[in-house]
Amino acid sequence: MYNISTFFKKDCQQPNLDFVDIKLSTDNLLFIDPRLIEISESSVAKKMQLRIEAFWGELIKAIRANDHFKVDELLSGLSEPHETRLGYSFSKHSGNSVGDKLKPKIIDAIRRNKAVRTGVLSHFCDVELFIEDIGCDRISDITTKIIKDVLIEYTQEQCALLDIPMTEVWQDDMFDYKTYKWLRKKVSLPVFAGKAIIFVPKKLVRLENSANSNLNSFYRFAIRNFISNDSEMLEDVSPTGKNGEIKLRDVKGKHPLSKESLTNWSIKFGKLLVDYKSEYLNERIHPLSDSEIMDIVYNEGYSQAS
């Protein structure tokens, strides 16, 4: 099993590398996290964030204007990326990604979503909380395509630093954040088994289960801090506590977790998403440790790491 470090005969492992030392011929169950990009102070991440904001802002504008042609054009470049080797690129699960067959479903979900149309969903990194059928794998794939030109530039810099050979290859679907167009360019990249490799900064990846963890945390925060304190939301809730006391389990029974509910609650309670991020989520966002990444890229210990 080759990793980047072993294939290119570099005498170093993950702790000494700035990028993820991926296995080259199989899955690496790590995912690019736009939240980590948003909070990072690195110059590379700032370039990435500029492109994400440009893409998402233009997409929201097109959706609100009912400009279906523009929406389709913006989403046309979101085919599944293989060059980073992250996520499910090589596995039987690749159908869960942003492949051609799923694009219409994803486009329709984004177009119809009330959180997008009302402005509640103004940050791309919050997509996982509101839009159905978009989890960590699809968010990672979408992010990868939007920031692909920055990742290529980063890869080239790392190759120059480590004396890793590169080959000229064609790359499709490179987003130009100034024109909002998807371009095809010839670029220099390292190659393994005839296929290009794009490196990903290790401080920008997360584990598979973190998206669901964020979703569940947002739901619990909403129930405890907003739904349980709103008399209208408590109507028809059947209490099971002593003397007719309404318990949290009663509220959850009446208002089970769904992205549609989270959307409606975020519209009803204008501070819900802001308070969740400032009071709970932001302080819990942090890059993975080298050991967590190593458990994915060097071992079969993913279940223990997640």
Score class of each variant (00 low, 15 high):
residue 69 F to T: 11
residue 69 F to S: 12
residue 70 K to W: 02
residue 70 K to D: 02
residue 70 K to F: 06
residue 71 V to D: 02
residue 72 D to S: 15
residue 73 E to D: 13
residue 74 L to M: 13
residue 75 L to D: 01
residue 75 L to E: 00
residue 76 S to A: 14
residue 76 S to F: 00
residue 76 S to Q: 04
residue 76 S to R: 04
residue 77 G to H: 04
residue 77 G to D: 04
residue 77 G to V: 02
residue 78 L to T: 09
residue 78 L to I: 10
residue 79 S to H: 12
residue 79 S to L: 11
residue 80 E to F: 13
residue 80 E to C: 11
residue 80 E to V: 12
residue 81 P to I: 03
residue 82 H to P: 00
residue 82 H to T: 11
residue 83 E to G: 09
residue 84 T to K: 06
residue 87 G to V: 06
residue 87 G to F: 01
residue 89 S to W: 09
residue 90 F to N: 11
residue 91 S to K: 08
residue 91 S to P: 02
residue 92 K to S: 14
residue 92 K to C: 05
residue 93 H to L: 15
residue 93 H to V: 01
residue 93 H to T: 06
residue 94 S to F: 05
residue 94 S to H: 13
residue 95 G to E: 04
residue 95 G to W: 01
residue 96 N to Q: 14
residue 98 V to D: 02
residue 99 G to A: 08
residue 99 G to L: 07
residue 99 G to S: 08
residue 100 D to H: 09
residue 100 D to R: 13
residue 100 D to N: 12
residue 101 K to W: 09
residue 102 L to R: 15
residue 102 L to H: 14
residue 103 K to W: 03
residue 104 P to I: 03
residue 105 K to C: 02
residue 106 I to H: 01
residue 107 I to S: 14
residue 110 I to H: 02
residue 111 R to L: 12
residue 112 R to W: 00
residue 113 N to P: 03
residue 113 N to L: 02
residue 113 N to K: 07
residue 113 N to S: 09
residue 114 K to A: 14
residue 114 K to D: 13
residue 114 K to T: 07
residue 115 A to G: 14
residue 115 A to H: 05
residue 115 A to E: 05
residue 115 A to N: 03
residue 117 R to D: 03
residue 117 R to W: 01
residue 118 T to I: 03
residue 118 T to P: 02
residue 119 G to W: 04
residue 119 G to Q: 10
residue 120 V to A: 06
residue 120 V to Y: 01
residue 120 V to N: 06
residue 120 V to G: 04
residue 120 V to E: 05
residue 121 L to M: 13
residue 121 L to R: 09
residue 122 S to C: 11
residue 122 S to A: 13
residue 123 H to E: 15
residue 123 H to C: 12
residue 123 H to G: 00
residue 123 H to I: 07
residue 124 F to M: 13
residue 125 C to E: 15
residue 125 C to M: 10
residue 126 D to T: 03
residue 126 D to I: 04
residue 126 D to P: 00
residue 127 V to A: 11
residue 129 L to A: 07
residue 129 L to Y: 03
residue 129 L to E: 02
residue 129 L to I: 06
residue 129 L to R: 06
residue 129 L to C: 07
residue 130 F to M: 09
residue 130 F to R: 07
residue 131 I to C: 05
residue 131 I to H: 01
residue 131 I to Y: 01
residue 131 I to Q: 04
residue 133 D to Y: 06
residue 134 I to M: 04
residue 134 I to N: 00
residue 135 G to D: 08
residue 135 G to R: 11
residue 135 G to Y: 01
residue 136 C to D: 08
residue 136 C to Y: 04
residue 139 I to P: 00
residue 140 S to P: 03
residue 141 D to P: 03
residue 141 D to M: 05
residue 142 I to R: 04
residue 144 T to Q: 10
residue 145 K to S: 11
residue 146 I to A: 10
residue 146 I to H: 09
